[in-house]
Design a protein around this nucleic acid. Sequence first.
DNA 1: ATACAAAGTTTGTGTGCCAAAACTCTCTTA
DNA 2: TAAGAGAGTTTTGGCACACAAACTTTGTAT
Lengths: 154, 154
Amino acid sequence: MPKRDSPKRKTGRKRPPTLTVQTEDYLERIQELLDRKGYARVSDIADQLSLTPSTVSNMVRRLAGQDLIEFENYRGLRLTSKGRAVAHRIQARHAILTEFLQVLGVDAADVGQDVEGIEHHISRSTLEAIDALTKTLRKHPLVLAEVIKRGGPG
Amino acid sequence: MPKRDSPKRKTGRKRPPTLTVQTEDYLERIQELLDRKGYARVSDIADQLSLTPSTVSNMVRRLAGQDLIEFENYRGLRLTSKGRAVAHRIQARHAILTEFLQVLGVDAADVGQDVEGIEHHISRSTLEAIDALTKTLRKHPLVLAEVIKRGGPG
DNA sequence: ATACAAAGTTTGTGTGCCAAAACTCTCTTA
DNA sequence: TAAGAGAGTTTTGGCACACAAACTTTGTAT
């Protein structure tokens, strides 16, 4: 058996005060509900995220603990400026990525899923590149057509 | 307070027999190690994923439980055809996404991170579109230049 | 063969996220 | 102002992962 390459061992892994994918999802949906209906209740959020109210109720407390929302039992909730910033950032990404996939002709059914999956994992650098790319593609419909006609006529 | 939109409640959320992001990561790295060195030991995997050997040792057992690898204590491990299929799928995505971001001129430092983040969350439809797009862009350097020069000089 | 170092495993602990069930609160509506 | 319905909360439990520490196995050098 050959020797190992490098026996280094991590002691404690990354410690971001937990701004996880879920956290971002919650904030995004809450903001969306506030925009659309003016309020965001536990049940609404639960429906949006396909979670149970108990899950949301607990989670919401954690978000409050991170100063992302303000929250009072049985009363309701609103975003702090910090939470709003996160939500808006994610929403901007959401919009840019959605546009991109739509322009590319990705199946409508997949666009939503994919965007939700990847919007939390993209650097500013990539996001900007994709944004620019989308705009450029719009200006060059012939190039775009070349991309989309891939696979030939169904 | 207004009435709720729809009081429906999910009973049991999605039940994919757990093919999680981590699972895919493990398989991807194991396959990569096998390709590169011909074997994949617990420590190798641990180093690759920046985890401790105990974590990998335990996880590997779970992968075996899902018929993704075959494994014998202290002896070694290999992928099942099922595990290999997953690994290859992820590796293909990895390659396509990496190429795409590189062509777009995304900071090299970000490419790896982003790809690792998103490769687990992309539909076939999107992947094919991106693949086609990358190829098309290569054929149209002027269009590509228009994308990349975004933001102007300095 | 024996002992040692390195690799691997087991065990105990902790965190995050989720759900079910039981309980509490609030808002009607009369 | 007294229910009852429905929203919200708490409690309890569970799974997926991760680590550290203690332990076992394996390969190797002598």
